[in-house]
Nucleic acid binder design. Structure first.
Lengths: 333, 333
DNA sequence: TCGCGTTAAGAATACGTATTCTGAATCAGA
DNA sequence: TCTGATTCAGAATACGTATTCTTAACGCGA
């Protein structure tokens, strides 16, 4: 049988309320009694039942991380693994725990919402890669449910959100390719509906002399096909891909055409994942400081949950850094 | 304010108990009343509070997945991403949710145990890559806490566990290299304490004419260094690596030495991760059917939690399949 | 018509904790 | 010495649900 506060109280010859107070570190309880209760707790290996605590305090201390993607993309794209790892890391040692859900299709998304917040399983949500007009966000808002966005939310300044400066990131990456002497730089973009796609495309267009853009789905496979078409139709001498996984697809397409990297084709990705080191000579990529973003998001989310007054604005933009490796460096021509 | 069973009861002009019964699909409640209550639930958008339910039923419907690795290895090694993805997938649509924790150091591991099971946050645990003499397992056993192992537990047949046939897997991979004409085949092993390492080493030794073994930590970086030493000291013509990530390290080391793959060096990995497609010509790898393992583990865990009589033995061994790609095929010499 | 078994819903309770309410004891001030 | 404030711990309650206990109504056989 499980040992409860009632048991501890009986053995310590105090009331259950006192045990609870000791547990909470209440100053008003007498030192001698406190020590006695603590000792009993210790010998009986007591730990409070989080289920009862959740009911009473109306707080589960669980944070939901909801990713709107195919479950399989978790394997293909290290970005999400990085994200999850950072969340786990940021939560380590805190009283908070992670509840993870991933789904792309709308029906499943809705059931996740039902399960996670309407039943009050989690205290707050972190949303990743939501679209601008995401109907889920409206539901969360009208339910007054605590949540934080990772991704662009410029159109809704009342939301708590953190994002990269994707415009600038694409500018920097494109400029770098120009400096390296590449002239026909194509942008292999993600789905057109995502704000992250639009932001980067805008940054790219702002710098490039002549824009060549192709939209495709995430993943190495789609990227490979799209890159093949791009290469055949436009003969670009460099491709900026939406992420490293797609850049790998680009590299595969280049191999098939016996294009040497970086001589014949410069390639740059995003996210600075471990994939970059698996490319011969290294893959140039934009580091988006996911760790910082996640830390901000969690700090903010916890503050919202605890109803702490939030310092600063509701949105933040994280800087980024171009990690130059072999795939984009051929020296000036 | 949140709508509760009490509210539904009041509006439907029945007792709270009846509402609860309707929710449970209790046959004994009158059809007319049931419809009325359901209608009220619907219009008021009622969903039961999972916190109260957890307390009452002594069940949180949360499953903990505990990975004993550095948090960072989640990014480096797609294996864990695959594992997590499979768990999420297997849980989708079920009443169960995933609580994820990752940590390598012992202190943090212990606090995870405190947090997850002694406070009854989760109903059961899935453990991955535990060592044979893992002290955590003893604690779980004496607490009678439901858990399932993914990994070898042959020494403890009373545990519920599922594993690959790692002996056979290593045999198959090694035999394949022999068939391809490789003669000096080295095994780049993981930490010596892990049973998975020992099992595979045994399978390898069982087939190879002359054994060359090096132990190292997981991850591409350690593998690269270890492979470099291996190549310089023993001039093997093929290397069997513990996983695909380590195989990538091997490939890097080979590149530095201008060794062509597969001509000068054959390489085989484990796990059949997406990394395999990122290698020129493809990386040969052993597919361990993680999906099947995870499904077995979860089915079993849920059965143990629900105290359902378990059919079949307590342990199962999953088959595997060698996915032959370019990195190990040079035709017979 | 009486009594008993059966059915169906309400009343009451328990799950383990945090917190408010209550009361006894102590202490300070006059 | 008495009064009122203060301190500290116990009693009581609530959180929202599931379930056991209880009771009222009904049907059926004698």
């Amino acid at each position: 049988m499980r040992v409860t506060q009632q048991d501890i109280a009986r053995i310590s010859e105090v009331s259950q309320a006192t045990v609870s107070r000791v547990l909470a570190g209440d100053e008003r309880v007498d030192g001698q009694i406190r020590d006695r209760v603590l000792a009993v707790m210790n010998t009986h290996n007591y730990r409070p039942d989080v289920r009862a605590r959740s009911l009473r305090q109306r707080k589960t201390h669980l944070i939901g991380l909801v990713i709107k993607r195919e479950v399989g993309s978790l394997q293909d794209d290290p970005f999400f693994a990085m994200l999850i790892a950072e969340v786990v890391d940021a939560l380590a040692g805190s009283p908070w725990h992670l509840c993870l859900d991933i789904a792309a299709d709308t029906a499943r998304q809705h059931s996740i919402y039902d399960e996670l917040l309407r039943t009050r399983r989690v205290d707050g949500l972190i949303l990743v890669e939501s679209e601008a007009s995401d109907e889920r966000i409206l539901r969360l808002q009208q339910d007054h449910f605590p949540f934080v966005l990772i991704g662009n939310a410029a159109e809704m300044p009342e939301l708590h959100a953190i994002d990269n400066d994707n415009f600038r990131a694409a500018e920097i990456a494109t400029s770098h390719l120009l400096e390296q002497g590449y002239r026909r730089i194509a942008f292999l973009a993600g789905p057109k509906t995502l704000t992250v796609t639009r932001d980067r495309e805008a940054g790219y267009r702002n710098v490039v002399p002549e824009a060549i853009v192709a939209y495709t789905d995430f993943g190495a496979h789609s990227a490979r096909e799209a890159a093949a078409q791009l290469l055949d139709a436009y003969q670009p001498d460099a491709i900026l891909a939406m992420d490293d996984t797609m850049a790998m697809g680009v590299i595969q397409a280049a191999r098939e055409r016996i294009l040497a990297i970086p001589q014949d084709l410069g390639v740059v990705g995003f996210n600075d994942t471990p994939l970059c080191d698996h490319v011969e000579g290294g893959l140039t990529s934009v580091n988006l400081q996911i760790g910082n973003m996640v830390q901000w998001a969690i700090r903010r989310l916890v503050a919202v949950i605890d109803d702490t007054s939030v310092l600063g604005g509701r949105q933040a933009i994280m800087g980024c850094e171009l990690m130059v490796r072999g795939s984009s460096v051929r020296g000036k021509l």
